[in-house]
Every structure is written in structure tokens, then in C-alpha cells.
Write a protein that binds this DNA or RNA. Structure first.
Lengths: 347, 347
DNA sequence: AATTAGCACTCCGAGCTTTCGAGTGCTAAT
DNA sequence: ATTAGCACTCGAAAGCTCGGAGTGCTAATT
């Protein structure tokens, strides 16, 4: 456990702030003017030697100013930083953008990623409230004519998933009736996870009683079901990558872009829902591509409708204080909006 | 009209090829070895002076080798180039990727953009066969319970568009019946364009006979309808931008990315369906951001189901011959696949 | 014991110079 | 009409200088 004197903390704080704002290593002379205590540059230099011994700041070369190390950011975030009160205008932007009418959870969550990236100028991810606790509340097969049929799956949370299939022969209501009855009797009310499991074994057996050849139906049902039960990430502000990654080589940028396009990887990056707000800095992120970035994640809680996540990806030199304040506000607003949305389906 | 001697054409052709492959300005000495005719470097230099006077090649500085000008590429494409026979493996990739089973036109067309970008290492756009000639062949309102209703629109080409709406009160079959009857009687069979027009004036009036308060329904119907009637572009290989644009500054790259993300702009870039294969080079493209790139567009024809487009965006120094050959093959394969797909809905 | 002034030392980066090689245009000879 | 020969040009890479910002250390001061 590292303990710092008050003056050392002030110096570390000032170094973090200066470097984050200006992007240049910070020297002892410029600190003299900024510190609230009156000391000479030589004293600051002596203190900096101690901070460096503790591994909190480093030099870029033998006679350069100092920049915070990962450990330094860590200490700053854990022990110095106070979340900034969120700006009134920012709050207004959030409330206004979430204020409109939405017809899908996914729309709200996708929109959230965009707002957050706009407010931060960084890249953001959002994950909708987990689907694993959702229950199947309805399934429809709508014949569209022309050898097409649309399968629609509805959950108790109001999520709707659908897919159109082309089939060899048109279906009639009579053929569908036993299938629909089977679903209603046996599966409605079960968590999607359970249905997904049963799909492997029980369902084909049971369905055999109702249908001659259940394979076609199983494909359709399984496909919509797994679509409905899969996690979905939304990414906002991909273009912002260009802004905070300027000095890097283009290959790295390309890899990053590619990472952000494969949204199924993002689950590993963000990690499971956890404490309310979490900051991971540099190599604390379990992905080598992101070892020079920082990731702020937050879990939002929509009561019994599950938990979701929001995340901000940016440079390690990031205005953490503002970001964390913003995250807190967003967390609350999003949870509130979603609760409001879910009210429809609770009655 | 420019006329060149045979030797001049050979020189221009070699310059285009060398520069396209190597990326460096081409000098007289290296050409000596490559030309099929035996001449000295001095002779080539003399010829190059003439080609430069005609504006077909330029120097990057006073004593550098030559690179083709836009006019030079133009001449090459129009008068020298022969489309390369498409590689057997490439053809196999195309056929295999289009060979699978699809449930939507859009899936096929989106997949096409990906295949083409993979084969070319460039960025590609595809536009599905125009929807404007599609006719409305069905409309459904499916109550999902929980204050939700799904609107489904089907066209005679088998396109299905759907959207879920949250409504204040649950609908019953009885309430929907007159609306569905109205659509069937009055609108089914009409081109989507016509329906869209009527939506402004006639439909609200006529609907008043059937429904007390038609506004809610009009919103829903209009929303799905305009979704169904809108053009949609698919972009493939956005990441490839990083490869063929390396030397450019990152700001340009960012703008380009942004352009490709706003797919509604792409209609202007690609232009209307036209001749079968068209090459636009540098400033011939009506978009300043693309003035250092080339665009190859092709129109594919699916008989009475309309025409669509495919396009390749790459550097001006592009292996045109291979690209055009590939474009031709792709054009045919895609048209064939789509015809095959449409067969279902023709019966 | 903590702080500070003074100073020699380090290193980066911007700008300048040098050098090398590839390429050109021109002239005169073939 | 073609070619050999040659002086000339320019860019890119490598080497150089120099100023500025910053450091650590020592000795003096509080």
C-alpha cells in the first residue's frame, strides 16, 4: 500500500491534469506556478524523484519531464480523483436524446452508445440488459404467401425478434395449429436459456407427437430463438478513434477498427457486469490491442429486468474525473428510461 | 481525339502497368527491358516527351520518372486495356459464396459487397435491384400482446419489411379487420411508389370511411412503407481503405470513413444505373473526397425485377484490367443468383 | 532536516548540409 | 530516326549543429 504526503498527492494530481490536457511531459518549473503550495522547482524535483521511485511517474527520456505511469493513473483514479459534477448542458443532451419514443430496447441502447460517444469524443460500447433471464411469452408463425413465412418471438420484456424464411410449400393455418399449441402449452413462460437447452433434446422428441417432420420447424424456431438470446453490443463513435490515436501507426488503427466491428469479441474486452463503475487502464485491459488505452465500464441496473453495461474507450491520458461523472449520470438516466419503457410490459 | 503510334501505346501501357504494380514513377531505363520492341532508353525518353505533351503522363518533379495522368488512365482504360479473363479460383469463390441459401434479397446483395471487397482488396458498394417497380402484395398487422403490434409489408418480389410498434391499447382482430380489408381492396397490386404518393392525399380520406381515427395506423403504415421503398446501399471492405490510402493524412481517411457510413450519400457518388461497366477516374467522380480515387461501377440487370449496381472504389493506380474482368463475372453471377431467387415468387 | 539557488549535463527536435542515385533533356554522332 | 554521352536536377536518407527544456547534484540557507 502506497501512502503519499499531501504535497505529493497534489503534485501527482497536477501532473495527471497537465499531461491529460496538454499531452506533453510535465516539468518542475511549470508545476511551480500551478501548485497551491509555494515551493521552489528544486523541491518539486526532489518530490518527483520519490514519486518516480514509487513507480507513479516516469520519464520519456533521461532529462525529460514526467508523465504518469499506469500505476500513477491507477493511484490517481483510486485515491485522488473526485467525480466531476456533470455539466448541466450534458445532462440536458442525455435527457433529450433519451426522451423520444422508442419501439425497441435495442434502439434505446444503440442510441445510448451514440450519445455517450458524442459527449465524450471517445468510442463507446453499450450492452443491453441481459437477455438470459427473459422468458418466452409468445411465438407466431405468419404465412406471407409466396413460400415465405415469418417467425416472430416475443419475450416477457417486450423484446421482439423475427426472421423470414423461404420454404418449399406454403403453410396453411391448419398445419401450424398444432405447433403453436405445443409452444403455448409447453414452452411459454420458460426462460429463454431453458428453452435453448431443451431445444437440444426434449423438444424434438415432444414435437414428434404433433408434427410429422419437425426438422424444418426446429431450424426456424432455433434460429429465431438464438438470435433473441444472443448478447448484442452497440458501438458508438468509431470515427473518434482517429482523434485520440493520431500518433499511432495505421496498422494498429486498422486492427482496432476490426476489433470494434466484431462485436462478439467485445464481451471479453468489457468483462462481466460488476461493480458500478470500473476503470481499467492500459495493460489492465485483457486485450493486447488496447494496452495503450483506458476503458471505463459501468453496470446499470434495471431491477428484475437485468443488468446492462456501458463503456467508454479512450486514451490513458483521459479526463477521468469528467468521464466518471458523466458515466454516473448516464447510468442513472438510462436505467430510468428503461424502467419507464418496461412499464408497458409489466401490467 | 488523340491518336498514338503503336510504340507510344506500348509505352503508355507499360507505364500504367509498372506504376500500378510498383507504385513508383517509371523511368526510361527500366522500360527498355520491358518493352517488346528493342529501342534505347533515349528513344523512349523522346517518346515520353511526346506523351507528356499530350497530357497522358506527368512527372512528379523536374527529373523524376513518369506516372500516368488522369487523362492517361482514361486513354488506357478506353483504348488499350483488355478485360482480363477472370481467374478460375475467383470465379469459384463468387459462385460458392452466392451458392448458399438466402432468405432475403438484401442478404444476397450485402454478401456481394463483402465477396467483391475480399477479391479485390478494395472497398465496394452494392445497391439492390431498384424497389421502385415493386408492387405491394400484402400487409399484415400482427398483435403481439403487451401493447405491441408488428406491421409486415410484403412485395411481389418477395421483399419483406417489418417494424414493431408500441401502442397505447392492445388491438383486437375486430378492429384490424376493416383496415386489412381496405388495403387488400384498394392498395394491393399497386407499385410502392404509387402507394407512397397516395399516402399524402387519397389514403387518409378513403380510410376515414373505415376507421374512426386513422392517424395511428397511417404512421405505422407510412413508416414501414417508406422503409420498404427506400434504396439501400451495402458497403464491403471498409477496412481495406487503410491499405490503399496509406500515405494520406488521417483526417482524409476519417472523412472517407464518414462518407462510407452515411450510405444515403452513396447514391450521388455512384450515380444512376447506366451502361454496363463504367470507370470513373480521379476528378471524374462527383465528390471532392474521392478525387484521388477511381470508381468502377457496373449495372446488373434482373429482367423485369429491375436493375441494381455494384461498385469498386480503389486508388487511381488500380489493376483496371483485372477489376473490369472481375466486375463482368460478378455482374453475371449476381444477376443469375437473383433471377434464381426471384423464381420462387413468380409462380 | 527541509528547502533552495546554482550549475553542469542530457536529450529531443528542428533545421541545415551532404551525399547518392535515379532520372531527365540536350547535343552530336551513327 | 535512333542512340551514346554527359551535365544537370531533384528527392530521400543520413549526418550535423544548436537551442531549449528539463534533470540531478552540490552547497548554501532557513
Amino acid at each position: 500500500m502506497i501512502t503519499l504526503t499531501e504535497r505529493q498527492r497534489l503534485i501527482l494530481k497536477a501532473i495527471v491534469r497537465d499531461y491529460t490536457e496538454g499531452g506533453n511531459p510535465v516539468g518542475s518549473k511549470s508545476l511551480v506556478q500551478e501548485l497551491p503550495v509555494k515551493v521552489s522547482s528544486a523541491t518539486i524535483r526532489n518530490e518527483m524523484v520519490r514519486l518516480e521511485d514509487l513507480g507513479l511517474i516516469v520519464k520519456t527520456h533521461l532529462s525529460s519531464g514526467r508523465i504518469p505511469s499506469i500505476k500513477g493513473y491507477r493511484y490517481y483514479v483510486d485515491h485522488i480523483l473526485k467525480p466531476e459534477k456533470v455539466d448541466g448542458r450534458d445532462l440536458q443532451v442525455i435527457q433529450h436524446s433519451l426522451g423520444g419514443e422508442f419501439h425497441k430496447i435495442d434502439e434505446i441502447v444503440a442510441q445510448s452508445a451514440d450519445i455517450l460517444s458524442q459527449l465524450t469524443s471517445y468510442t463507446t460500447f453499450t450492452l443491453r440488459p441481459e437477455l438470459k433471464d427473459s422468458r418466452l411469452s409468445g411465438f407466431r408463425l405468419v404465412p406471407l404467401g409466396n413460400h415465405q413465412v415469418m417467425a416472430i418471438l416475443v419475450t416477457n420484456n417486450g423484446d421482439v425478434e423475427n426472421q423470414t424464411f423461404t420454404i418449399p410449400n406454403d403453410l396453411t393455418g391448419d398445419e401450424l395449429e398444432p405447433v403453436v399449441r405445443f409452444i403455448d402449452d409447453q414452452l411459454v413462460g420458460l426462460p429463454l436459456q431453458d428453452v435453448l437447452q431443451q431445444l437440444q433434446r426434449e423438444i424434438p422428441l415432444k414435437l414428434a407427437k404433433y408434427l410429422q417432420n419437425p426438422d424444418g420447424f426446429l431450424d426456424i424456431f432455433g434460429s429465431v430463438l438464438s438470435k433473441a438470446a444472443s448478447e448484442r453490443f452497440f458501438v458508438g463513435g468509431k470515427l473518434n478513434l482517429f482523434n485520440y490515436t493520431a500518433q499511432q501507426n495505421p496498422k494498429t488503427l486498422q486492427s482496432l477498427y476490426s476489433l470494434l466491428d466484431q462485436t462478439d469479441n467485445l464481451a471479453n474486452v468489457i468483462g462481466p457486469p460488476g461493480q458500478r463503475i470500473q476503470v481499467r487502464i492500459g495493460n489492465e485491459i485483457t486485450n493486447d490491442l488496447l494496452k495503450d488505452y483506458s476503458l471505463i465500464t459501468a453496470t446499470y441496473d434495471v431491477d428484475r429486468h437485468g443488468k446492462g453495461m456501458i463503456a467508454i474507450l479512450g486514451p490513458t491520458a483521459m479526463p477521468y474525473s469528467r468521464m466518471i461523472g458523466l458515466m454516473g449520470a448516464f447510468q442513472r438516466e438510462l436505467a430510468r428510461k428503461l424502467l419507464d419503457y418496461y412499464r408497458y410490459f409489466d401490467e
